[in-house]
Nucleic acid binder design. Structure first.
Lengths: 217, 217
DNA sequence: ACCTGAACACCGTTCAAGT
DNA sequence: ACCTGAACACCGTTCAAGT
């Protein structure tokens, strides 16, 4: 078999002065523009994303059938990043300590939500895509749910829990962290006397309170 | 002094067939229209509210400086109703049983949120008025916070709580119910295997789990 | 004092026409 | 195949003009 040179991808003046007629990967560029708009706290509009991609207002509709479809793609991307961060955080937590893992999960969840509020909102608000319209988001989410399910099952197996109703514990735990993240998002903390600087510490305290409540000792 | 007849307020065909030039109380009518739009699950738009009030698109702006101001008025009304319902629910709960009151509060909170999702969202989303732009909403909210503060202080005084960090308990409790309400709002329950019919029961279970976690026994 | 109706600058979306 | 640019039906908001 003839050995081929490990072909450096032929660039051939891709970076010419002349604006090319075809955009490189408009789909990708539009998603990134939308992510950035959200991160800036601006409303995500198709037209503005198009403007940032330097294309006409109609162009995005060749890649996304609707604004909601664009938002779903943005949610997919954000969900991917979220899940990656969760998994990194859980890499440090030993499998032998399921409640420790549960705690690490909660902390990672809240930290990401605090530091990426707009992306968190797009993932969770459910206003942009009908439940399950994006199979990828659905799958990612299901795997995150399965993750905490396993932790609780392990904890129960080790006799660490007061209650045997794991589903109830799981939903309560999720309501707790989701509620905390949304209180932040929706600007509730000032009226609760929680200041900017102490939010992450407060998150930690709330998680610990919950775990102390479900733990046998 | 000549006695004048106790003049029945001169109506003089106010209810004539001809549409009167002045609306009776356009402000009120616009707020109601907006509440109804929200309850129908539709986007609340100033123009649509104007249409329902049978006035021109510009008319609302004589009563509200902006869409956000209209939404703030809607939030005020919704918050008033919410608080009224909470207080009715607490009327039945004896002052001698602070954790019972805490439970009753949580249930009333969640029931209202489940049954008035759109109004609940307008109250809580904080997208429509800067934190504290409406003194009335701020005050109503502060009183609801004070309500639960008292319950927990009473519970602590009776030695019913495991922890003495009441602020932490309060924020955790609020995060729990708010999170649960928002999971419902944001359509999370299908992917958690919680069906429509069992949501209120699940809410009860989650509240009980939390209270069992903070109670001394 | 309160409302109308036209106007303006935005949006999402469609579609013929261009390359 | 992909993009342009005009068009349409919506929005929030302003403002002269009417009563």
């Amino acid at each position: 078999m003839p050995v081929r040179q490990p072909s450096k991808p032929r660039v051939r003046r891709e970076r010419s002065e002349v604006r090319p007629y075809h955009h490189g990967d408009l789909r990708r560029v539009l998603i990134d523009a939308a992510l950035q708009l959200a991160a800036e706290g601006a409303e995500v509009s198709v037209r503005e994303a198009a403007r940032r991609a330097a294309v006409s207002p109609g162009a995005p509709f060749r890649h996304f059938p609707s604004r909601d479809a664009l938002m779903a793609a943005v949610a997919e991307e954000a969900q991917r990043r979220f899940r990656a961060e969760i998994e990194v955080a859980l890499g440090d937590a030993p499998a032998t300590d399921p409640l420790g893992r549960f705690r690490a999960f909660g902390l990672a969840y809240l930290r990401w939500a605090m530091r990426n509020p707009a992306h968190f909102e797009i993932i969770s608000t459910g206003r942009y895509f009908a439940h399950g319209s994006s199979t990828e988001v659905t799958r990612d989410n299901a795997e995150v749910i399965a993750l905490t399910e396993r932790m609780l099952a392990d904890a129960a197996a080790q006799g660490l829990l007061r209650s045997t109703d794991l589903k109830r514990i799981q939903i309560a735990g999720r309501a707790l962290v989701y509620g905390f993240a949304r209180m932040n998002l929706d600007g509730h903390f000032p009226r609760w006397g929680v200041e900017e600087g102490e939010i992450e510490r407060t998150a930690e305290g709330v998680i610990d309170l919950f775990i102390a409540g479900i733990a046998r000792f």
